[in-house]
Amino acid sequence: MHAVVSCKNVKKVYKQGAIEVIALADADLTVDEGDFVCLSGPSGSGKTTLLNIIGGLDTPTAGEIIVADNRLHTMSKSQLAEMRLHHIGFVFQAYNLIPVLTALENVEMVMQMQGVAKHERAQRARQVLKEVGLEGLENRKPPELSGGQQQRVAVARAIVSNPKLVLADEPTANLDSKTAENLIDLMRHMNTEHGVTFVISTHDPRVMHHAKRNLSMVDGRIVA
């Protein structure tokens, strides 16, 4: 099976004054198309750092990262943005929706940046919002939605343009258990029905329970 993500000896060192903090130490990871991978581990183990580096949101200190056949460590800021636009969807712990846009506009946003025609993007956005259970709430702005609804909008935004990879950083952390269960079902559905590849960092055992592969991180290394 074709690898969507390939990390080799990825290292990330942060400087805090004179002290060097090793966030990732020679991490190796391969994620195949259609995979559903959970990264777990204690706080500070490097889960978010690894997701950020796979997503091109941060640069590694050393190592090689290939995402959807793009060698991230050799790309400029603009090239990384272009790569994210076409190949990666993000779901964040804090939803991160744009407050001045409606649910529909938040979902349409990525397609708008891709240059998809207005009619087509509205149709697709409505379709995806329906799939995540938000039919009828398209014209509400984020402050008018509950936390669970906002996270569903974020998932819809992440998958609407059919990315090769969705990176989710603790997506259930701010949700109550019922909403979290619904969200996990939704992501699993997207994975099995649409073949979307997920890499999720989480502490949540319910998410881990649904994963095809569970990986643990300790002190910046993938240990299992």
Partner: peptide, 10 residues
């Protein structure tokens, strides 16, 4: 930060 994450160029 979010806009950049979603693919909007600097």
């Amino acid at each position: 930060g979010l806009f950049q994450a979603l693919g909007l160029k600097p």
